[in-house]
């Protein structure tokens, strides 16, 4: 090589120093970036939100340990003086020496199983049977709006049929079904009661959408031809934005709705003021 060993090793030491400092600074900067900005998350507003956040914190804690640990090590390797003459000879392909790696990995596995267990509990509740007194709403996605349907006084949703969809009848409600007569159909606005489980049936009339409620920490896709569902119990009054999280076309970025969480009584009053779909235009 053109450069002498001496020069090369002093240049290496300089590069190593910069790299080590940079790795440690990156670590600090990343920790600061997360730590200083996590409060910008939408404040939790449902019963699931704190549970999901708890899992997030557990994983975040594990990640910080792994992230800081490895970067401390890498920085130390870069900063420490390289071996003067020769690296140590460590073929290290014997199971006994593997323990240096396998023990930390075992700890990682334990951590994995811990938060997987936590996750399964929330998951089971979310997909399990919702409480019997749930407040039911149906949402049908279209490019680029949410049609919100309430079952009306009879508590039953009327039949729909995609063949009946038109500009006047955006979700194809079949008015020959008696249950459909008192269905209330709104666009981009949904009122739900605080403290009572809300069951939302999700459908789509064209492409995939995803019904996303950031403060509730949940989302679920709307799949044409199928009905998916989500439920949660709102815990805090307020107006929240409904977002679409699945790419659904050029208006995707603007497909938003309004979720209003208020008293049960206020919701009932508000519903009473709405005209059922069958009586519209009369």
């Amino acid at each position: 090589m053109a450069v002498s060993q001496q020069q090369a090793s002093s240049r290496d030491r300089r590069t190593g120093f910069v790299l080590g400092v940079a790795l440690w600074l990156f670590t600090l900067a990343t920790l600061w970036l997360f730590g200083a900005n996590l409060h910008k998350m939408p404040p939790p507003a449902s019963d699931f939100a704190p549970q999901i956040d708890a899992i997030l914190w557990v994983i975040l804690g594990i990640s910080v340990i792994g992230f800081v640990g490895l970067h401390l090590y890498l920085g130390w390797v870069a900063l420490s003086r390289p071996a003067e003459v020769r690296a140590i000879y460590l073929p290290a392909d014997r199971p006994k020496e593997w323990l240096w790696v396998l023990v930390p990995i075992g700890l990682l596995l334990v951590a994995d199983l811990t938060f997987d267990h936590m996750s399964n509990k929330v998951w089971g509740a979310f997909f399990g049977k919702p409480p019997a007194n749930a407040f039911e709403v149906e949402v049908t996605g279209q490019q680029f709006a949410w049609h919100v349907r309430y079952p009306g006084a009879d508590g039953r949703f009327g039949r729909t049929n995609p063949r009946l969809i038109s500009d006047e009848n955006p979700i194809g409600l079949d008015l020959s079904d008696p249950a459909a007569r008192d269905d209330i159909l709104l666009i981009n606005v949904m009122h739900v009661p605080e403290g009572r489980p809300v069951m939302i049936y999700l459908r789509s009339r064209d492409v995939l959408h995803s019904f996303f409620l950031p403060p509730m920490r949940i989302k679920m896709d709307c799949v044409p031809g199928y009905t998916t569902r989500m439920w949660f119990t709102p815990q805090r009054k307020g107006n929240y934005e409904i977002a679409c999280a699945e790419l659904c076309g050029m208006g995707h970025y603007n497909m938003k709705g309004l979720l209003v969480v208020e008293d049960e009584q206020a919701v009932q009053n508000w519903l009473a003021q709405q005209t059922p779909f069958s009586k519209r235009g009369q």
């Binding site: 699931f48 999901i52 999280a245």
Partner: peptide, 18 residues
Amino acid sequence: LGGLFLGTASTDLYLHDT
């Protein structure tokens, strides 16, 4: 480590497609 957040089903309910 970021993958742990997304591979966990219930946190993915929030973080999916973000």
